[in-house]
């Protein structure tokens, strides 16, 4: 346990000093501040860009449009930036050999994996939490009186999908070689999960639905109980992937 906290501290120092933390916080802060603004300004922007004489009817934006921006940005750019920033956290250490000194000092290999996952999860939680908080504040300011249902659970589902992807990335990095091997395997895993949706009934349990259906939740188009099976699959799947990463890394020749 002591090794876990020592290595977690080292990971957080690394994120802070190598600008990983700064990049993620900056990206998610920008998302958080611009989500409501884009929702508010989109009708005016579209009207201004219309050719003269042409008119379109755009409904008055609501708080739901602001949260739609949040889920879209987080699900697309947000997760891509997250994976890119963390793609080399394990592979980089293995290829450069920075772990050798520490492993020969008795650092437990499982502490490396668990601490890396813990640090990534912490940064992801802060990033998505910050973005959601800023979206909530600006939405309340720009769209006063508008309420969005099941919002907390929808944000939780988005967070859980990010946590699952980080577990996939870490497990993939223990198996694949090179700095981008883990990223490539993670991309393939996401494609495989998306393809799985063609199997009847798979959508209900598929971790991908946590991200893809979060907007339906916020719009009250589905009840949150619809996503309970996916939550029930994703949590043990993420933990299982971390377990696999530990087992593979313990046997890995460094």
């Amino acid at each position: 346990m002591k090794h876990y906290f020592v290595f977690l501290k080292k990971e957080l120092m690394e994120y802070a000093r190598t600008y990983k933390l700064l990049i993620l916080l900056a990206v998610f802060t920008i998302f958080g501040m611009t989500n409501p603004l884009i929702a508010k300004l989109t009708p005016d922007l579209l009207a201004n860009f219309m050719p003269g004489g042409m008119t379109i009817t755009i409904p008055e934006p609501t708080a739901l449009d602001s949260w739609a921006q949040f889920f879209k940005n987080t699900q697309q750019m947000g997760l891509i930036v997250l994976l890119l920033v963390f793609s080399s956290v394990l592979a980089g250490e293995i290829s450069k050999g920075t772990l050798i000194n520490l492993l020969t000092k008795g650092l437990m290999r499982q502490a490396v994996i668990v601490a890396k996952y813990g640090a990534m999860l912490l940064v992801w939680s802060i990033s998505v939490g910050l973005s959601a908080f800023l979206t909530w504040v600006y939405t309340a300011y720009l769209f006063p009186g508008d309420g969005v249902s099941q919002l907390v659970f929808a944000v939780f589902c988005m967070w859980l999908f990010g946590a699952f992807l980080l577990a996939v990335l870490l497990a993939a990095s223990t198996v694949a070689g090179g700095n981008y091997g883990g990223l490539l395997l993670t991309g393939l895993a996401v494609v495989a999960l998306l393809t799985l949706n063609i199997v009847p009934g798979a959508l209900k349990y598929n971790p991908v639905s946590l991200a893809s259906r979060s907007m339906e939740l916020a719009a009250n188009a589905i009840d949150k109980s619809v996503l309970y099976p996916a939550v029930a699959v994703t949590i043990p799947a993420a933990l299982g992937l971390i377990g696999i990463a530990v087992l593979v890394f313990r046997r890995k020749q460094i």
Binding site: G97, T98, I100, N101, R109
Partner: peptide, 19 residues
């Protein structure tokens, strides 16, 4: 793997890599 004998050993690689 995690050998306990390393508590007796200090190791200097040919090109030591640090953070």
């Amino acid at each position: 793997g995690a050998t306990r004998t390393n508590r007796h050993i200090g190791y200097l690689p040919d090109v030591p890599e640090f953070y």
